[in-house]
């Protein structure tokens, strides 16, 4: 049965259905409905909802719950995510599975609460300190928001790497019909023999993000980076739309990705051969499929609600095989389909 839900609510419901039983937050717009939904529904499922005294406290509670072996999540919006970055780096270093939702607003600084995609660098290339990666998934519809949160829990568990959902204010606020996926039964959640869950009858486990001996620490990080290489091989996700005969392909994710779908339809109506390449996993970035596309499509136009962050990954993937122009908006301004179409027409002719 389809239900009409906000993106924020669908992400919360997805987390509950994925077996998240500890959620810690500090409220911030535009993800307030996620917090409200968790407050209302998580306790009914036997979970813990806790509004912490700060973002820093919330992410460290996530660290604690994850170490104890519980599926756990926190959510925030851009400046709040910045505050969580130290804790996220610790999660990555300690190999703890957890899900972090960022409903992006426009920045830097306090910025405003309008939709933007300026946290791409922060999400995919560090953000916190040290040599680590996050699995980063970018939903484009409310349906996908629910599904990708559930996937984020599974991937995070499988690889013991924290996962981030990179959404934005528009996806968080809008409503769309959702067919909610079946809940994951508790027995399907992977066992956690590494968790600090009480050492009665077994040697104690230690969860730690550091080793003072550089040679031993190097081995820990080598193992971590072997895992990242495996994720890059197995977990790349993307969608292509009308790319078969395209002369220009739009590269866009999240909210901008779905707006570009409308752009493709309008362009096609006018006889312009335009397609869409929509990365779903931002890390690992779908470099290989994009490179293949660049061998037959002369122009790949990246469109972002930023000054051009994913654009760097597009150019790295394409390595000069195609033209890679950029169109972006700043400050929370969202271009309409017609505005993007005007930009398309600068690069392609009927």
């Amino acid at each position: 049965m389809r239900v009409l839900m906000r993106g924020n609510e669908a992400m919360a419901e997805g987390a509950i259905r994925a077996g998240c039983r500890c959620y810690f937050c500090y409220p911030i717009t535009p993800q307030g409905e996620l917090v409200e939904y968790m407050a209302r529904h998580l306790p009914r499922h036997g979970g813990v909802f806790l509004q912490a005294e700060s973002e820093v406290a919330a992410i460290n509670m996530v660290y604690g719950a994850a170490a104890a072996g519980v599926r756990t999540m926190t959510s925030s919006s851009s400046p709040g995510i910045s505050l969580k970055m130290e804790g996220i780096s610790y999660l990555a270093g300690a190999r703890l599975p957890a899900v972090i939702v960022n409903v992006m607003r426009a920045g830097p600084g306090l910025g405003n609460i309008a939709p933007a995609q300026g946290d791409y660098f922060q999400a995919t290339k560090g953000g916190g300190h040290g040599d680590y990666r996050l699995i980063v998934l970018a939903p484009s519809t409310v349906q996908e928001a629910a599904e990708l949160v559930m996937l984020a829990f599974d991937l995070s568990d499988r690889y013991r790497v924290p996962a981030m959902i990179l959404a934005d204010g528009m996806l968080g606020q809008m409503m769309e019909p959702v067919e909610l996926p079946e809940p994951i039964p508790p027995e399907k959640i992977p066992p956690r023999p590494w968790a600090v869950s009480g050492a009665k009858g077994r040697p104690p486990n230690v969860i730690s993000s550091f080793d003072l001996d550089p040679y031993r620490f190097r081995e820990i990080l080598r193992a971590l980076w072997d895992t990242y290489r495996e994720i890059e091989e197995k977990e790349v996700r993307w969608e292509e739309y009308a790319t078969e005969d395209a002369e220009l392909v739009l590269v866009a994710y999240g909210t901008m990705g779905r707006i570009c779908r409308t752009v493709v339809r309008r362009a096609r109506k006018e006889g312009l051969r335009v397609g869409l390449f929509r990365p779903i996993s931002l890390w690992p970035f779908p470099s290989e499929p994009l490179r293949k596309l660049a061998e037959r499509v002369p122009v790949l136009l990246t469109v972002e609600l930023s000054a051009g962050q994913m654009w760097e990954d597009v150019r790295l993937a394409v390595e000069g095989r195609a033209k890679t122009p950029f169109y972006g908006e700043l400050g929370g301004v969202v271009p309409t389909p017609d505005e993007v179409l005007r930009e398309v027409k600068k690069h392609v002719h009927s």
């Binding site: 717009t29 609460i113 309008a114 809008m174 409503m175």
Partner: peptide, 16 residues
């Protein structure tokens, strides 16, 4: 619209 089988979106202006 959803109940009648259509695809729909509802997007509010949100702000302070």
């Amino acid at each position: 619209g959803m109940d009648q089988g259509f695809e729909v979106t509802w997007l509010p202006s949100y702000g302070p």
